[in-house]
Design a protein around this nucleic acid. Sequence first.
DNA 1: AATCTAGTTCAAAAAAAATTGAACCTGTCA
DNA 2: TGACAGGTTCAATTTTTTTTGAACTAGATT
Lengths: 166, 166
Amino acid sequence: MPNGAPKLEVLTEIEQEVVNMCADAVRVAGLPKSLGEIYGLLFISRDPHSLDDLVGRLQISKGSVSQGLKALRMFGAIREREGADARRTYFEADIKLKKLVGGFIREQLRPHLKSGNERVKELEKVVMEEEDPDQRVFYEQRVKKLERWLKQGKLILPLMQRVLGE
Amino acid sequence: MPNGAPKLEVLTEIEQEVVNMCADAVRVAGLPKSLGEIYGLLFISRDPHSLDDLVGRLQISKGSVSQGLKALRMFGAIREREGADARRTYFEADIKLKKLVGGFIREQLRPHLKSGNERVKELEKVVMEEEDPDQRVFYEQRVKKLERWLKQGKLILPLMQRVLGE
DNA sequence: AATCTAGTTCAAAAAAAATTGAACCTGTCA
DNA sequence: TGACAGGTTCAATTTTTTTTGAACTAGATT
């Protein structure tokens, strides 16, 4: 009978430190702290953890951990693994920066660029209706500027991924 | 006697659209909406605006606009300009993407990388105290990984600035 | 089939962040 | 000098975001 009981111990100093660093790092990216805490603990752990392990060690609710794991899986930041209790799902961190940044770009940045494009197209239409010719010319310049910004954004994402390709 | 009275008119469709786009864009970067609204209105205006103009047109409080302008000045995203009323300070948008991104990197990203470095140095010390040799080797690997991540981050910032050099 | 249990969902609660507005500077003008 | 106006500050309030936890689903297990 395998020991599948969730771990309940408190975090060691090292674990706590890494968990905090990751929590702060994801905040910079505008993601919830709990996500970083979960990733941080997996990152600094040799053995994979189950949902209940994470609840016990990090002292955050089952709901938060469930949602956090879901998001991290979407980013490709964690992987499922076999573990002590065949009934549970265990997770380990994917530590390739390329993967993490790639997931972030795909899930967070690209959707915004996409909707930005649509909005600029809308803008072009509205600008065409401007009566005053000088004003219209000015607006056209500015909208063109927005378009160029979006293009630059689209350009820089794959570049970032390439550079972080290690 | 120059007419320095603040503008009170409501936003046109175009202005509203650009203001909203900028508001959403800065949210992605983790900055307050009001900052984006202010920048957006300046971006799409031919003439510079005073603090009271912005309060009147955007319907946000004097306090918020004052703070927003302060932050935008720090980023280098806006410039002071002469205007109708010699007593007031007027602002116009700096529309060079390089400048905007540069300001963001300098004010928001670099400080985090810096504190990250310090924290990793702290971590190294704590790891040295780990008794179990296998565990210590594992921790050393992970801390090294964190160091590499920070280095990559430092590497990519100037690259971004260069690419956005237009 | 009834019971367990790992995991999910989501409305409500809590926490964090942004905004407000009144008090307060500071320099100008009469 | 005193009244005034532009601008700043910051404690209190509002809004937004995150977290919680109880109810629920689904897939074993007896």
